[in-house]
Design a protein around this nucleic acid. Structure first.
Lengths: 390, 390
DNA sequence: ATTGAATCATCAAGTAAGTTGAGTTAATGC
DNA sequence: GCATTAACTCAACTTACTTGATGATTCAAT
């Protein structure tokens, strides 16, 4: 799956599409905004913005929301997103289950569902995904023609890599483009990403990163992944496998270990299992933590050092606005981890005048991956892309 | 220096500029190419490409280079870059000296110079930079109106960060935008980056990364920096300080240390000094290495482990096409380091069917920083940017 | 050698979309 | 009330890409 992003030429049609998405993104970021303000910020004439706004209005993507009085002059009409102007389907494929969700334009989940995944071959998975799509659209009770697309999240890494064969990745797509495959199967525009990237997008669309363009999301799945958002676009690497932070070597208690062997859900579960306690869900972890289970506390204490090291790496290599922790880990444990990290003083991120905390907990909770899948579509609807063709 | 990259709207004028740069970039990447091929690859009509080509021809940026016979049909006229169609000035500001160079459109250096830097305050540095620009243009004997801009390289990190005060960064610009300042002082478009980023750009413009869009450059300066190129654009982070890899913790000989305390020119020099040998230049290191100086050999042996760890981190976090080593370190030592690294098997970069080596040595040698400064300008001339405003 | 298919290239007319400038509407403040 | 300010609209204009017809040049088949 070689990702190439040929830069494409601009013509009138693509210019319009670019400008539409840019205007839509400004409306999203501002919450409410007037035409003249968009024009000032975008380098377009007010007339051009006016035309685009009237387009967006008639497509139902935005709505008029009164006038704002801002001193002298005619008060500008304010526009805001119309949540029910479009919907996104998000589908998360896990080894044993398929999750699906429908989000509205604002990123709010309208419905979710979970289905056991029996067949694990290509045909079986495809069938299950198509069925999940139909079911979730019916459950959310939205008109099918307002579905902007489907986002699909599945475990990476994609393609054949040195990490292949560890069981974490989804190997049915080795030599196939998953996005082309599902675009065909679902009859919708499809975006495919791994869980960490989708989670990052979710936080930007409707979470703690809504105003941020450059941040990192440290994702607790079975292992540990990193989603990197840089200037509003995902950093996916040359082959779509950037963010495999679980495999970087970090110091932990005098030894050098792969990060995810020290910090991940599997790692806690292994500690608990060694202590004779079987916990196989996030809820179970939450309960054990609430009970101050000593094994969990010990694990948390041991996790502080490698996690601090990992955050030092992220901050110094990316200079993000913030690092978000989230995924399949109870909020309480994430909060504990955040509190226990010794934020490195020697970091480019330790700058005066910060307006965002260096560490945040993600807002999308346990469904992060699935909601992120939908968010991929929403985000795409707001991302101008004359420059890059997916 | 908060970097924001507002996405700007497209209009006819900006579309043309975008398309011009896109065409120019395709000509650069292909070496020689015909109009129809550009049209097919870019989504523009042949007519549009034709118009742009004739523009570029009359601006002298490209030249006609015969016809290529490719089977049936009229053989397409081939176009290639005209090296003397434009020039870039590169200026590198170091604590004790200013280096300058002029590059042609193909990235070939036409002249270089070095000047001792006495004054280290803002006024003094500015004066020296302006003088260096005048001098290098005179030395290269190029028409001033063909100078596309100036690239300036200076040590990061920029702005106030947790790394400030270590002496490595250039503190005269704390609350000032260096690029705005120098644009004004030089009367030319100016691009400012740190050395590692500039080095990465240099390799893309005229080095081992000329066909690559996504790669990492591990830069040996006084410390150690990382330049990240992702889809043809630098990953600079939220505040321009991405790539501070020298400060990440890595395992080295049983201890966890900041990477650049194990791997950097200062680190070798310190080892040599401890052994009673003062070496303060890259040439001196080359001589010592050629003589198989035991201290250097010992240092190299010790460097293999932390360097391998660093490369594991880079590969797994970025999934680059390749990692390039370069900067102020003799080629022979870089080659030795490359040969001594144990490339991690457990890495997304260890994939079958690679066409590029996982590790490469940079091609620009010791002037990398200065040439990179010029390359920033060349690269900018080839980078379509409707989407992002610097 | 001739003819036809394929490809590159140009011309001229057509079109989409942004810009410009004049004029209208609706607030604020003296 | 009247000048000022800012948002907004209309209509004419401009830019740059697209389309379709035509011609040029080469290869290949007859």
């Amino acid at each position: 799956m070689a990702l190439s992003t040929p830069i494409v030429g601009a013509n009138a049609e693509r210019s319009r599409s670019h400008n539409r998405q840019m205007v839509l993104d400004r409306v999203r970021q501002a919450g409410q905004i007037g035409r003249a303000e968009i024009a000032r910020g975008s380098g377009l004439s007010t007339q051009a913005v006016s035309n685009i706004i009237s387009d967006l209005l008639s497509d139902g993507l935005i709505s008029e929301q009164g006038r704002k009085s801002t001193g002298r002059g005619q008060p500008p009409v304010q526009y805001g997103l119309n949540p029910c102007g479009g919907y996104a389907v998000g589908i998360e494929i896990r080894p044993d289950a398929i999750f699906a969700a429908v989000l509205d334009l604002c990123g709010t989940p309208l419905a979710t569902l979970r289905r056991v995944l029996k067949a694990r071959d290509l045909a079986g998975v495809t069938k299950a995904v198509v069925a999940a799509k139909e079911a979730i659209i019916a459950k959310a009770d939205i008109p099918e023609n307002k579905v902007l697309g489907a986002g699909i999240v599945m475990p990476g890494p994609f393609g054949r890599t040195g990490l292949s064969g560890t069981g974490s990745e989804f190997s049915i797509f080795h030599d196939l483009s998953p996005s082309a495959w599902f675009t065909d199967a679902l009859g919708l525009p499809v975006a495919v990403e791994n869980d960490a990237n989708a989670a990052a997008v979710a936080e930007r669309v409707a979470g703690v990163a809504s105003g941020l363009d450059t941040f990192a999301f440290l994702y607790f799945g079975n292992g540990l992944g990193l989603g990197l958002m840089h200037r509003g676009r995902l950093v996916t690497g040359a082959f779509g496998n950037a963010g495999e932070i679980g495999h970087i070597p970090v110091a932990s208690n005098g030894k050098t270990v792969p990060l995810e062997s020290a910090i991940s859900r599997l790692s806690v579960q292994k500690h608990l299992a060694d202590a004779g306690l079987t916990v196989d869900s996030s809820d179970g972890l939450a309960v054990a933590y609430a009970a101050q289970n000593p094994t969990i506390i010990a694990w948390l204490n041991g996790a502080a050092e490698p996690l601090s090291n990992a955050i030092t790496v992220i901050e110094n290599m990316f200079d993000p606005d913030t690092v978000i922790l989230g995924g399949a880990m109870p909020d309480a444990i994430l909060d504990h981890l955040i509190a226990s990290v010794t934020l490195p003083v020697r970091s480019v991120s330790n700058r005066p005048g910060r307006t965002t905390a260096r560490l945040l907990r993600g807002a999308s909770g346990r469904m992060t991956g699935t909601l992120g899948a939908g968010a991929l579509v929403i985000n795409r609807a707001f991302t101008p892309r004359i420059a890059a063709v997916a």
